[in-house]
């Protein structure tokens, strides 16, 4: 591919724009929700896996899944949404695994947080950053 001066200029502009893309965060609301769910307890890592695409083609339908063996409940928060709560999965006695998948709405590029309440009363945390593409004819 041959780069013309214009192409190079455009790429430079694109790169500059990428660095200032809005990264949405609704910190206070998120902190309150986590405190309410955990009662302020410490959260471990490694026992919960939150799966989400690195880049979502459209923020209206983003596939995610959570998996934490031995969890009684998993809460998912979208920290950059106008209202951060997404869903809380409560697992019953006939749950075949403590995992679930769904499709969610993201108002823009942001961090997703999942917190699992384990059967022993401890908590696990995982997070993923999802870039939401906006613009072009698809946006």
């Amino acid at each position: 591919m041959d780069f013309t001066r214009r192409d190079t200029l455009a790429l430079g502009l694109g790169a500059a724009a990428m660095t200032v893309l809005p990264f949405r965060v609704n910190a206070a609301a998120t902190d309150d929700l986590i405190a309410e769910f955990t009662g302020g307890a410490e959260m471990g890592a490694g026992g919960l896996t939150l799966t989400a695409p690195e880049i979502a083609e459209n923020g209206n339908t983003v596939p995610i899944s959570v998996d934490a063996e031995g969890a009684t409940a998993i809460m998912v928060l979208a920290t950059g949404n106008p209202t951060p709560p997404v869903a809380t999965f409560n697992f019953g006695e006939l749950a075949g695994s403590q995992s679930a998948s769904t499709r969610i709405r993201l108002a823009g590029t942001q961090e997703l947080i999942a917190i699992a309440r384990m059967s022993d009363g401890s908590f696990q945390r995982d997070s993923k950053t999802v870039k939401v593409t906006i613009g072009g004819c698809g946006g």
Binding site: R6, D7, A10, L11, L13, G14, A17, M18, P53, I55, A56, E57, T133, G135, G136
Partner: peptide, 15 residues
């Protein structure tokens, strides 16, 4: 053409 070049180049890092 310049407009198209600009928009085409813009999102080269997307999915």
């Amino acid at each position: 053409r310049l407009a198209l070049t600009l928009v085409l180049s813009f999102g080269a890092g997307a999915a």
